[in-house]
Design a binder for these strands. Structure first.
Lengths: 187, 187
DNA sequence: GTCTATACCCGGATAGAC
DNA sequence: GTCTATCCGGGTATAGAC
């Protein structure tokens, strides 16, 4: 309760859930309106477009993501730190993570309006994981480790689909994922 | 040259490329027709629907996938064999692999008409990888290993997007991916 | 086998009353 | 803030001539 225009919040919650289940493109404004118990026109009082609903959902995790990217340049995080940070980021915004992975339209919307380079966003992370004298094998291992943190985290959490809010990642699970990723990274 | 109604084949090639780039939902019949140099009506002479074009593309890799699943029951393949088989399958049908991962509509079309159980298809693979006395940690490691073979294989091949046909997976790369997956799998 | 023309539907979005 | 009604565009698909 409290904070901000409650229907706006409800719309975002509904959208997050539907987008995660059916994808952004696969969800219509009418779907959201139905779940909300109103008509599509009512939605447009709160949001000027469907894309803006998406932006409303993405804003927060996107700054988190950029914070991680920023830390790559200022300090030099260890692989453990970096992979751990991505596990947490994925866990915190798992509905959005699946959505971004799955919907080309969403990916486009993100890269189009990103402060950062439009170029493949993960590339920088891979380079840091691979290290400075990265030969081809090292890059492959970096991809492998990154794949583990992203996919395994989602796999562990996906069973608890109901009750969208704060499904916590078990610390033991987190440790197991991180360990697997680090093994994949180091020969 | 030779084999079968050439325009039908050209349509399939074009569709495979466009579907991979823009997704199945993101590609219109008009897109395919334009690339083909004809109109949408002409397409419908060769295929009764857009979904049938997709089915035409999926048929072959789908039997390969089912062959692997079948081998799970008859013999007991080692983790190395199993993971290796998935690397090869992913490499051979990478355009389709991305498509399936990315488009919910495609996934639905597959599961709807699958001979096998409609239930999550990868589940069985995970169970085999995790082994018989699978505790939670073992299942996580199985997810990790599976994520590596799927994602890393695609990552290695994606740079060569042009010239869709037979981009071969370098044996050294394959070995590196497999090794990383096995390390993720075993504590 | 390919064309023009068109039917049909669905999704996003707007106008204007209440 | 929400409604009814409607526009518009794009997408799949069909009819029928050539």
């Amino acid at each position: 309760m409290s904070s901000a225009s409650s229907t706006k919040q409800r719309i975002l919650e509904i959208a997050r859930e539907l987008f995660a289940r059916q994808g952004y493109t696969g969800t219509s404004i009418a779907d959201i309106a139905r779940e909300l118990g109103t008509t599509t026109a009512a939605l447009y009082y709160h949001f000027p477009s469907k894309a803006d609903i998406l932006r409303g959902l993405l804003a927060e995790p996107l700054v988190a993501y950029n914070r991680i990217l920023g830390s790559l340049r200022s300090r030099h995080p260890s692989a453990t730190e970096l992979l751990g940070a991505f596990i947490d980021l994925t866990a915190d915004s798992r509905e959005l993570a699946v959505m971004i992975e799955r919907d080309p339209a969403v990916l486009k919307l993100i890269t189009d309006q990103l402060p950062d380079s439009s170029e493949s966003i993960n590339q920088q992370v891979i380079e840091v994981l691979a290290g400075p004298e990265a030969d081809r094998a090292a890059i492959i291992r970096a991809h492998a480790a990154f794949a583990v943190v992203k996919t395994a985290t989602l796999a562990v959490l996906s069973p608890h689909q109901e009750s969208a809010d704060d499904v916590k990642l078990d610390p033991a699970d987190r440790a197991e994922i991180l360990a697997a990723a680090l093994r994949a990274l180091r020969p």
